[in-house]
């Protein structure tokens, strides 16, 4: 009971951000803060342009205005970072 209560009441989540090459960065984030802060922090850390990168949770897109509470995230969940896809011919 105590653990459950602690989990339910805790404001912070531990999220793992994973790039395509397998690099992992851990973030601690409030349930109610928007993902924009996390994205900016990641882009600065990994030195990538925010316009060329997409953040996915279970194959669905995360917007800057989303919060972890919107997507019903739990601590330990993975966020995938994918680079822009392009195609025309071989």
């Amino acid at each position: 009971m105590t653990d459950q209560n602690a989990n339910a009441n805790s404001e912070y989540l531990n999220l793992k951000v994973k790039s395509q090459e397998g690099e992992e960065i851990f973030f601690k984030i409030k349930k109610t803060t928007q993902f924009k802060k996390l994205m900016d922090a990641y882009c600065q850390r990994a030195q990538v342009n925010a316009h060329n990168v997409r953040f996915l949770f279970d194959g669905d897109r995360i917007l800057e205005s989303h919060t972890p509470a919107d997507l019903k995230m739990e601590s330990g969940d993975e966020i995938d970072v994918v680079v822009e896809q392009v195609g025309g011919s071989f």
Binding site: Q85, V86, S89
Partner: peptide
């Protein structure tokens, strides 16, 4: 499908 990053 995006194949090899060059084709759809």
């Amino acid at each position: 499908m995006n194949i090899n990053g060059t084709h759809w």
